[in-house]
Design a protein around this nucleic acid. Structure first.
Lengths: 238, 238
DNA sequence: CGGAATGTTGATTATATTCAACTGTTGTGG
DNA sequence: CCACAACAGTTGAATATAATCAACATTCCG
């Protein structure tokens, strides 16, 4: 098992850090000097797939921003299983709530691909929050959005069958244009990871996808899935 | 079915409002004049059990603070069923996130007992947030806490059997002193509401409680439950 | 090439829901 | 105060859903 300390190589390229940090929603409209001060205390971290970026229950090294690559936020379950709460992609960040309250990390954070992260330590953020009302207001917005989207997540996953959750997920991956009848999508992660994301086993995902194929709703070649009847698919998601 | 407009009687007792509002964590250390200004735009609402205080998807009349009584936050499911996210008791509040972002209410809010609420309209709160950094910081704290506790909730409810969730719930109701072997607790709500809170049917709750009784872990007289073996109960919660 | 990771499939089992019937409790109006 | 309706809770039988177990196939990579 990978440890936090072997999660990957780290660096302090100031230019890179400023760029990554300045593009975070958190720092929107925050003045350059403040961003520079934060960047000067942050660090870059490169990760290989499977690297453990943060562990549930342990102190958070800081707010984690993904520059490129993909990670997952997961609740560990007994026997190496886990429930994936969400994926964390480029330009997304994690840990604001726990960092600001000095609470332990509520989830495991694990790299799914090669990834580059910026790790922004906690104290400078807490200080900036006190000093800069623009930043504080951004925090309010980000935390409120996080709360509502987590509620939406709970709403979507409770009281819906696994078939409905899968259909909804596939539909959400499809091109937002509703005009196209068929459309090709590429799963961003393995089917096993998708299963954990939907809260089911890989066996169940395999069977559900087979059903969709047998019903003529999709075609499938490994991670490439073609939606043949988006209307009926959306119907299943109900 | 009760409508929002028949949810109960409303009033504007200024003293009462100031007292209720000043005691909210949101307004801690906020100066009196600001609290007075907020209170002057808020209103008191009395509700009977079953009254619909806010409906999912509709605009929120404002942040809702409970002065006394009990309400539930619930995700409506098909056929009149629902998943209860949490109960809202005296001195708790709801709606900060949706109010600040001008988003529709993410859940149904329903009174479970006679209750008195303060309804604080959205605009004054948004304005105070811009003006008062103390208030903004309180908001950050409250939203971050809400986010973490919702995550803890998801953690507790996923991958645990209904028996484990019930045992954990009963244990959480018990007197925090770990010394006492047996202890009497009183369910704050009906068993049907408890079932919805734990995400199961009332039939399942009935059977689970019967099992606990048959195993000699609890005694039960209606809503009064006596825990006979707290250690084994905590063991079931695992 | 070979081994690890990923995915598939069938059989079996566990968990909780659904349906249906019934009992107990509570609050209200006659 | 009692009758009765509405609500809350119990119980058993049948059913649905997805997990688990076990075996095997496929793909990915070094």
């Amino acid at each position: 098992m990978a440890s936090i300390y072997s999660a990957g190589s780290a660096g302090r390229d100031e230019r890179l850090l400023q760029g990554v940090i300045a593009s975070m929603p958190m720092f929107r409209d925050v003045d350059r000097p403040s961003i520079g001060l934060i960047a000067s205390q942050a660090r870059i971290q490169h990760c290989r797939p499977g690297a453990l970026i943060a562990r549930q229950g342990e102190p958070l090294p800081g707010v984690i921003a993904v520059a490129y690559g993909l990670a997952k936020l997961a609740l560990p379950r007994r026997r190496g299983e886990e429930k994936v709460l969400r994926f964390l992609g480029a330009n997304e960040s994690f840990g604001e709530a726990a960092a600001l309250l000095d609470r332990p990390c509520p989830v495991d954070v694990v790299a799914l691909t090669d990834a580059m992260l910026a790790v922004i330590p906690v104290r400078p953020l807490q200080q900036l929050k006190e000093r800069d009302s623009r930043f504080a207001n951004n925090l309010v917005r980000i935390l409120a959005e996080g709360l509502l989207s987590l509620m939406a997540e709970v709403d979507a996953n409770s009281g819906r069958s696994s078939a409905q959750r899968l259909a909804a997920y596939l539909d959400s991956l499809a091109d937002p244009r509703p005009g196209s009848v068929t459309c090709a999508i590429l799963l961003p992660v393995t089917k096993t990871a998708l299963a954990a994301r939907l809260g089911v086993t890989k066996e169940t995902i395999s069977r559900l996808l087979r059903n969709l194929r047998e019903q003529g709703l999709i075609e499938m070649t490994q991670r490439k899935i073609t939606i043949l009847d988006r209307v009926r698919l959306a119907g299943i998601a109900s």
